[in-house]
Design a protein around this nucleic acid. Structure first.
Lengths: 149, 149
DNA sequence: TCTTGCCCTAAACTATGGTTCAGGGTTTAT
DNA sequence: ATAAACCCTGAACCATAGTTTAGGGCAAGA
């Protein structure tokens, strides 16, 4: 008899998704894996459908969705097709948040790039020294301890 | 006598950068603000140069640099022009990490988009139902409790 | 002067997302 | 049949990044 598809141990899953076993247990405890069944020995036994759901969880996690929201999403998935509008809303708002954050990060990264450019300029040392000197003077001009120098 | 430039209270700084005062105090305690001087009363008194540095800190923080690394960077800034190579290295490697992470997030976001597309398809409900049915069958095929349904 | 608003510190508390450990059963290969 | 390799739970522990609270001093306007 040929086994078309198997079940997977927690170790298999950990390796497949490159997650620590402890994280999988933790996710289960947090209610992210309500679909995982246990065998007679009390061992978690993962099916291929489980793997698909875990892939989704990992994907959401990689995009920094909070575990609370992932749990919510999974609960929607368990609830059948009537939850499709809720799933869409959840994923959409997540996507928007992610894109907004990406944009903000790109913006702040530009400022960092600007600093890098300055450090790469031939007169970088002089510029940096002048800044430091200015900061120093400013402190003394205000009767403050000169924390620069 | 005309005051060309002023100093700023912690509240001023908090408002300018839209940070809670408690966070500024926390950053100071974590060694991110070694440049901030205190007046006779023990109050922090911020200069314009301080504000520039804080802007940089906020920028690094917005791009998720760990406080530990920001402290390092600020310490380099206090150390004068000889630390320019170190500053460059730190900012460069930070930038690379950020870009790499951005790329990964965009990739995972595509998977989420794929899910959204499916939910938006006319046959979404049927598809979702079929998936659930499959998952159900799979559980029973392996003699596991049917966690779906 | 005295009240209101602002400032300070230290220490405790919170949230999030895990990891590690102790103690104990199961399965597999030899 | 026994050791090595796995699996389990619960509870403690950890890191990161703050926030809150308690207790007290300083400053500015009425």
């Amino acid at each position: 008899m040929i086994k078309i598809d198997n079940t997977y141990t927690i170790k298999d899953v950990a390796e497949r998704f490159n997650l620590p076993i402890s994280t999988i247990r933790y996710y289960d405890k947090q209610g992210l894996l309500p679909f995982v069944a246990k065998n007679q020995a009390g061992y978690r036994e993962f099916t291929t459908a489980d793997l698909h759901l875990i892939r989704t969880i990992v994907c959401l996690r990689n995009t920094e969705m909070p575990l609370r929201d992932i749990r919510q999403y999974i609960n929607y998935c368990m609830a059948g097709p009537k939850s499709i509008p809720l799933r869409k809303a959840l994923l959409q708002s997540h996507k928007s948040r992610v894109l907004k954050k990406q944009a903000k990060i790109m913006h702040d990264l530009q400022e960092i790039d600007y600093k890098l450019d300055r450090y790469n300029a031939p007169d970088a040392a002089a510029f940096v020294s002048a800044e430091l000197q200015f900061a120093s003077n400013e402190k003394r001009a205000h009767g403050l301890r000169d924390t620069f120098s």
